[in-house]
């Protein structure tokens, strides 16, 4: 009995130790500067509270975007060095995609974006926003694959936050009026996706 108590005390101690270790490491991923460490830790606790409290969640927490909603404004740096701002492209049909190098289906459908980019040229805007990977990773990926359509960094996840989704690839077609026309979660192969997006883009252009 005593041995068992000792054992469970030890486990509790270990559990506490590991929790502390994990929290110390939390958020302090390579994406974030060490200077932000303390602040990040605080944020973590706020997150946990709002999660448990539910109702205490901040009112500014972005909501999921639905078809028919006005596309939320954002701005992001591009691989080519310029900056993309959504509102500066109003009046154009926009294909907005969220992706990551570790996401197989995302990488698989990318040739469709390249083909659409070459085909429609200035007529529409294509933007593939990377999800929180380092800029070097994104650069290397774009270079390896020779893609020329605009790709944005989102190291801090600010754009992803404005467009919450349970998974990627997550692709939206935004109309000339700035309203989201179609939303796609997941992707088949590039050829299929090309047909799907082309149809959506043509419909949005015809409006």
């Amino acid at each position: 009995m005593r041995a068992e108590r000792k054992q469970s005390k030890m486990l509790v101690a270990m559990a506490l130790f590991m929790t502390m270790m994990m929290l110390a490491g939390c958020g302090n991923t390579d994406n974030k500067a060490n200077a932000e460490k303390e602040q990040t830790t605080t944020e973590v606790f706020v997150d946990v509270e709002s999660m448990l409290g539910g109702a205490e969640a901040e009112p500014s927490v972005p909501q999921e975007v639905f078809e028919g909603d006005v596309a939320p404004e954002f701005s992001a740096p591009l691989v080519n060095g310029s900056t993309f701002t959504l509102s500066e492209n109003s009046g154009k049909v926009i294909l907005l995609n969220f992706w990551a190098t570790w996401c197989g289906p995302c990488v698989g459908e990318m040739p469709a974006f390249q083909k659409l980019y070459e085909e429609y040229d200035e007529e529409i805007v294509i933007l593939a926003v990377n999800c929180m990977e380092e800029s070097e990773t994104v650069d290397q990926f774009v270079k390896d694959n020779g893609y020329t359509f605009p790709v944005a960094y989102d190291v801090e996840g600010m754009v992803s936050m404005a467009y919450p989704s349970s998974g990627i690839p997550y692709t939206l077609v935004i109309g000339t009026d700035g309203v989201v026309k179609n939303i796609y979660v997941g992707a088949a192969d590039a050829d299929t996706q090309y047909q799907v997006y082309k149809a959506a883009i043509d419909a949005a252009l015809a409006e």
């Binding site: 590991m18 994990m22 929290l23 490491g25 939390c26 958020g27 991923t29 990040t40 944020e43 973590v44 997150d47 946990v48 999660m51 448990l52 539910g54 999921e64 919450p164 349970s166 998974g167």
Partner: peptide, 23 residues
């Protein structure tokens, strides 16, 4: 699995803690 609200609305918690691996 204490993001209980996720079960109610079928969404995944994606906050900073998600960067941590559980054992």
């Amino acid at each position: 699995n204490c993001n209980f609200t996720g079960f109610a609305d079928g969404t995944i918690y994606q906050g900073d803690l998600k960067g941590v691996c559980v054992p």
